[in-house]
Design a protein around this nucleic acid. Structure first.
Length: 651
RNA sequence: GGACCCGUGGUGUAGCGGCCCAACAUGCCAGCCUGUCACGCUGGAGAUCGCCGGUUCGAAUCCGGUCGGGUCCGCCA
């Protein structure tokens, strides 16, 4: 019966959808000896009701005869008044209460004395006139302010006492938003016939490029499990199994260095569909994403629907990124055509540009609006940044008010060409043109990063807008010079564009010898990424399910038949039993939740995240294993500073 | 693996070679206060300046190392 009842969409249209007080009605299971109501629900209409509430003491204001307690739970704050003359016992109890004590208060809901209402609290029209105050738990003075939303607190301290940090409204609200996000995801998938399947965390290493976390086996000493970097192979096996439409909120593990948007364990929305093409997957995901965002953050507008689509080449060309932030313009402008003469010979007069173009490179620019007045120091900083991103230098043209041009390269280019370049960029008075000359890849990358940097610094991106886009037609492979082979740019099972199938071959026909001249370098993958506000939110592909194509693709990746069997044995074998055409995608839940919460760091939407060095400051993990644990596994530490342990006995 | 930033009472900051056994705010403790809601008033306790070493007549302040946290590059989808 309850299974068929419609999902509660109360959150969708509730005005306070973004507040910690926003939750489904829990009154039905609330009645316990501790409380009849939460601290967030009482209103003027409840006046006269006898209630009991429990919560943490948010603040105490002691006026002698009269004590005010702000009582807090995750639903809100209710003011309690204790009058000594009427309630001497309650008053005595309230006198010894301190911040963060847990108390139960019994009393009558009353409209506040006129003129003393607090419009900043949803419960500000009423107060609870206490007849009894019971202390359930005492609390030490907390290590930081829980009741001050503006307090800046050292993050290490927050992580050490995360359970106190989560008591703070902002943190609780973010976890709540994340919960709603995941709930919405589940609802949409179930509504579209997806089956939620759990896959194991103790699996075999699935080479996806990242380092595996390894778990030693006790029952099979000398062997290890790997924690999944993603359920990639398992979900493909589910397709062979006929599960048609699969999804999972999956925990994934990657042992790589951390960043603001990367944790060693993180959560993916993993999904896979059978009998689909690229458009079918993208269509579903787009529909799902829109619906989920509408439910989770109804007040965040979409910049554009349907989501714009770019090929990889176009995205790199226009934005210098395969995850462009579309909330502002500042697109890259190719200056090349202006820098060559009628015979297409580079002839700008500025040697760096000419040589770059002659060598097949690119000269491109972005326009930083209003930055013509940048100081020498600011420009040096930008140059420094550009160099760190891989550029050899940064040329610029500043268009000062009044038409004066400020540029170290103008004298080489001459007046006419300088005007021509300004024209090409569309820059206006007061703007600063930044120019990079390098290989196509470096030019795009450096300008792309500068674009994001400056867009942020100049406040060009509306923080509320959700600018989704798709990027597809990625190159199938990247040449790995070190290992003399083609690396799949994403998933090794990613399919190839049908018209590029014939390119999947080695030049000299020697399958054992990939070379950088191979036409495969031009092959494009059936690969699609979804980006949101400049973050890569997810990526997926249509997989290769045909044995022959798979073999050719793997050969280009430098895999031998034996190597393939070792790494992908289960999938390859399964593919001999009727694999359906299939494809899917994985979306980063942490990133999604962070972006919906206006956060630039996924730690802010994780209950118990790890530090940059992979530590848990609260649990003090990782830690030295206990005596015997290693021996039982047949392991010993070797050559670890201060951690060497005696080797296990030979047998 | 690398670059940079930060580390001072419970918390957030100031001080950046002697004026500092360290200042301010807040929190904490005590007393007073019947309408506050960052309550108010009065008084009080609380840090040898992450740790180790060096330079110096003298170090919170300079230098080196180390530990912890963060940002970024490499790495990583």
């Amino acid at each position: 019966m309850t299974d068929s009842s419609p999902p509660d969409r109360g959150a969708t249209d509730a005005p306070a959808a973004d507040s910690a007080a926003d939750v489904a009605d829990v009154a039905d299971l609330l009645a316990t000896p501790y409380r009849t109501h939460t601290c967030g629900v009482l209103r003027a209409a409840d006046s006269g009701t006898i209630v009991r509430v429990s919560g943490w003491v948010h603040r105490r204001r002691d006026h002698g005869q009269l004590i005010f307690l702000d009582l807090r739970d995750r639903y809100g704050i209710t003011q309690v008044v204790i009058d000594r003359t009427g309630q001497p016992d309650a008053h005595a109890a309230a006198s010894r209460v301190r911040s963060e004590f847990v108390v139960t208060v019994e009393g009558e809901v009353a409209a506040r004395v006129p003129g003393t209402e607090n419009p900043r609290l949803p419960t500000g029209a009423i107060e609870l006139r206490a007849t009894a105050v019971t202390v359930l738990s005492e609390a030490k003075t907390p290590p930081f302010y829980i009741n001050d939303p503006d307090a800046t607190i050292d993050e290490a301290l927050r992580l050490r006492y995360r359970y106190l940090d989560i008591r703070r409204e902002a943190m609780a609200r973010r976890l709540l938003l994340r919960s709603r996000l995941v709930q919405a995801i589940r609802e949409v998938h179930h509504a579209h016939g997806f089956v939620e399947v759990e896959t194991p965390n103790l699996i075999k290493s699935t080479p996806e490029g990242a380092r595996d976390f390894i778990v030693p086996s006790r029952l099979q000493p000398g062997s290890v499990y790997a924690l999944p970097q993603s359920p990639q192979q398992l979900k493909q096996l589910l397709m062979v199994a006929g599960i048609d439409r699969y999804f999972q909120i999956a925990r994934c593990f990657r042992d790589e260095d951390l960043r603001g948007d990367r944790q060693p364990e993180f959560t993916q929305l993993d999904l896979e569909m059978s009998f689909v093409d690229e458009d079918a997957v993208m269509a579903f995901v787009e529909k799902m994403v829109i619906e989920v965002c509408r439910v989770t953050t109804p007040d965040r507008p979409f910049q554009e629907t349907p989501f714009p689509r770019f090929t990889f080449d176009e995205a790199m060309d226009r934005f210098g990124s395969d995850k462009p932030d579309l909330r502002f313009g500042m697109e890259l402008v190719d200056l090349g055509p202006r820098l060559v003469d009628a015979a297409e010979v580079p002839s700008s007069g500025f040697r760096v540009f000419d040589e770059t173009l002659a060598a097949g490179g690119r000269v491109k620019a972005i326009v930083a609006p209003g930055m013509a007045g940048a100081t020498r120091k600011e420009i040096d900083e930008l140059t420094e940044r550009a160099k760190r991103f891989g550029a050899k230098g940064l040329a610029y043209l500043g268009l000062a008010e009044g038409g004066e041009i400020r540029s170290p390269i103008a004298k080489f280019l001459g007046d006419e060409l300088t005007r021509g370049l300004i024209d090409a960029t569309g820059a206006a008075e007061g703007d600063l043109i930044l120019i990079v000359a390098d290989t196509p890849a470096v030019t795009a990358d450096v300008l792309g990063r500068l674009r994001v940097e400056l867009g942020g610094r100049l406040g060009l991106a509306d923080p509320d807008v959700l600018a989704f886009c798709w990027v597809n037609r990625f190159p199938m492979y990247q040449w790995d010079a070190e290992n003399e082979r083609w690396d799949a740019t994403h998933n090794p099972f990613s399919g190839v564009l049908p018209e590029d199938e014939e390119l999947l071959t080695t030049l000299d026909g020697d399958p054992a010898k990939p070379s950088p001249q191979d036409p495969a370098g031009r092959a494009r993958a059936l690969q699609y990424d979804i980006a949101l506000n400049g973050w890569e939110l997810g990526g997926g592909s249509i997989r290769i399910h045909r044995r022959d194509l798979l073999a050719r693709s793997f050969t280009l990746q430098g895999q031998t038949e034996a190597g393939m069997k070792e790494k992908f044995g289960a999938v390859l074998e399964a593919f001999e039993y009727g694999p359906p055409p299939h494809g899917g995608i994985a979306l980063g839940i942490d990133r999604w939740a962070a972006l919906l919460s206006h956060q630039s760091n996924i730690r802010e939407v994780m209950a118990f995240p790890k530090t940059q060095s992979g530590g848990d400051l609260m649990l003090d993990a990782p830690s030295t294993p206990e005596e015997g644990q290693l021996a039982e596994l047949g392991l010993s530490f070797v050559g670890v500073r201060g951690r060497a342990t005696p080797p296990p006995p030979a047998e």
